[in-house]
Design a binder for these strands. Structure first.
Lengths: 199, 199, 199, 199
DNA sequence: GAATAACCGAGACGGTACGTCCAGTCTTGAA
DNA sequence: TTCAAGACTGGACGTACCGTCTCGGTTATTC
């Protein structure tokens, strides 16, 4: 009955938790959920940088150790909280036009990053990922890989259908598309972020 | 004879110190330099996240207060240390071809970010800028504005000369160009960063 | 098995900790003792004014927070250290003569104040008590009340037995007796403190 | 025309200022007075412990150095401020009766200590005197010697006139009289301080 | 009347200690 | 056996003052 542990946690914990103990995580009880809820609340109240493990534990009515037992650091908790709460699945669009598909997916991502509280959280995580390799990997997996994969499919389709030049370097194109979005987000550039056109 | 106060400091200290006192900020003596030197050394030894104000003060043989007197936070010290040490001026290239010019400038930036210790420092600063608005502004001024301005000139030239479509959204183009570079840098993407083509 | 918390601490911590938690203040372990020991040593080495919380923490191999957790200030630590170490109980004398009893008790107090290192510590505490009400109360309780009580008994006996005038204002008499001792102590008067006669 | 430097200053500065410089203290200007005034004000606003040299300097519109030039420490400034402001001369009373004279002088002292702001200042000074020998000497001179001298005269008169036993140890008697007053002051004993009778 | 001191305000400086926050680990007692 | 509660060491924070030390810019005699 135990639901599988969410991905970001595993990603950060590395090794894999399968061989841990006979009844690995026997009584995860409500604590687990309480922690994620507390983290989410605090995130909204104080922003990423303002949250600390102690506060999460206190708010969740949980011992600090219980948090450290399951997550290696603040970023891990928060990534899981984020994953749980807003299941930010990006859907592969099917508008029929490559260009429209790209605009659609970029629009979806941009919307999440700039119009929901999640955006600031993600930035906080990205900042932390610069320092901590484990966080970086988890971040990649959670917020990057999927998007790139979908986009790669779209572009491949475009090339196949002849809408894009066959010589197009797909990876670089992806970098430029997402790069522009992230770049503006991270540098607080104020001029309109909506006007995305060329490929 | 006093050299003008370097920019990043001023940028972070905000408002502008011009109206402050007749000789605005007297005699920073050797301490000032010692602090920047110490910061640079520590940066190289421990990386951005591993540096703390106390350590800088100790290494520089300086009271902590002397640091806090002139800089509001770690990021400010480090930005000035960086600016002092590596005068990372990006030169406007004149290769004759728009494409070559762009590759040249992107190459310069990429080189600094990926092949010098400065790269990691800059990433640390960018991470911190996400939390602290003052740092963000200074960062922008130090590491972004200039590059964008130069690139904007190149693209404008290109349009004028007919090498680029007149309808090109210059700002978005710049976002995509720099975005790609920063994006890879921040996400540690390992596949080659050299293969840049389209405009 | 836990020995009861010593009085001066409680006195300074104020209100009373009885309603705090089931086992009110768990496990002070060795740290507690280490802190008191360190405080005592430093007291002997540098005198009251030369001791600081940071030094106590360092010497005791303890985090500063552990000190602040249990004591509100330097004075509190030192009073407890003093109380622990030298159980300066003043015994009710029974020489048979009121005058001799008084001389005996004053002699005891004088001895502690002038011939042991404790004297200087107590002076330091008294000086600090002038600034901090909590310290003042604790000081009173630790170094004054008991002495006055005993002396009050002696004087009452004396009146009962007819050795002293019934009209004697007992409180004022106590003030004068102890006052003389403290007065000399605080003002470093050098002429002999032994010559005590009248009542 | 230069008025002689007030006593507490000299007392604390020790050595004597006579041989200092040709026109020793040439232009003491208004600064000197401004400092004392500032000290007095701050004393009333924040109490002895709340005053610091920097605040005095700032309030007086004076460089810190100017204070250090003339006084060695906070206590010295404050003693002079006190001496200047409230010229707390205790007058030798002549009521005709020894007992009345003593009550009169004790009453005067008690009044100053308990019913004027000066009382708290003096306590602060006494506390500091415990740490600093120089302060102790100046304190003695300022607040003790004179009183003792006057009282000694009264008691000697009393013995001469036969109102007091010739065997009376005058010094101890003085200790007890003043001791009682100071003792109550320092220990914040609340029961009436007015009821002083026996000798 | 100009030159020359001492003096002064301002405040930078190296330091020491403060009291607080949080990380990550360890311990206890109740369930 | 698991957990909440929270004590523990440790490190850094940013602040407050200390007492010393330059700075320029007044004064106030002295030549």
């Amino acid at each position: 009955m135990e639901p599988p542990v969410s991905q970001p946690l595993q990603a950060i914990q590395g090794a894999g938790t399968s061989a841990k103990s006979p009844d690995c995580r026997r009584r995860r009880s409500q604590s687990h959920q309480a922690i994620l809820t507390a983290a989410t609340e605090l995130l909204e109240e104080k922003g990423y940088a303002g949250v600390c493990i102690e506060a999460i534990a206190q708010r969740a009515g949980v011992g600090k150790q219980t948090i450290y037992r399951w997550w290696p650091c603040k970023a891990a908790v928060i990534m899981e909280a984020y994953a749980t709460q807003s299941d930010q699945a990006i859907a592969l669009p099917h508008t029929g036009s490559i260009k429209a598909d790209l605009l659609e997916i970029l629009g979806q991502i941009t919307r999440v990053l700039t119009q929901t509280p999640a955006g600031l959280v993600i930035i906080g995580l990205l900042a932390e990922a610069q320092t901590d390799l484990k966080v970086a990997e988890a971040f990649q997996q959670q917020f990057v890989t999927q998007h790139r994969t979908i986009t790669r499919t779209i572009l491949a389709n475009g090339i196949e259908r002849g809408e894009l030049r066959p010589a197009l370097n797909v990876e670089v194109a992806i970098d430029m598309l997402f790069g522009a979005v992230w770049y503006r987000l991270l540098l607080n550039i104020s001029h309109s972020i909506k006007s995305l056109s060329k490929s």
